[in-house]
Amino acid sequence: MSEEHKHTNYMRIFWILLTLTIVEVGMAYTMQSHKALLIVALVTLAFIKAGMVAAYFMHLKLERKTFIAIVCFPLILAVVLVIGLFPDVGFKLGGKHHHKPAASQDSGHAVEHK
């Protein structure tokens, strides 16, 4: 039924992926001095590209909503995993707070110590 439509899309997705990859590499070479902006831009582009591979190459866009929800659930858990690791490692930037009882400056540490 929509085979022809799907075929034309494949090459279009390829060109979009290729263009985004070139943009990414170009940004990596030119924007290293704006680290925060670079990271936000690159991660956003990576998620767009990964989403396009899943939606079009893996035909996830054509599946049922329930099925898509089941497949996307581990992705949510994965994001939780990354965020869950942040208090352990990421917030130690300011130095070693571990032996100060209640002197934590931000709420992140207060939660960690409880």
Binding site: E24, Q32, I39, L45
Partner: peptide, 8 residues
């Protein structure tokens, strides 16, 4: 992986 490990 390419984005997160190689590019920044």
């Amino acid at each position: 992986i390419f984005t997160i490990i190689y590019l920044f």
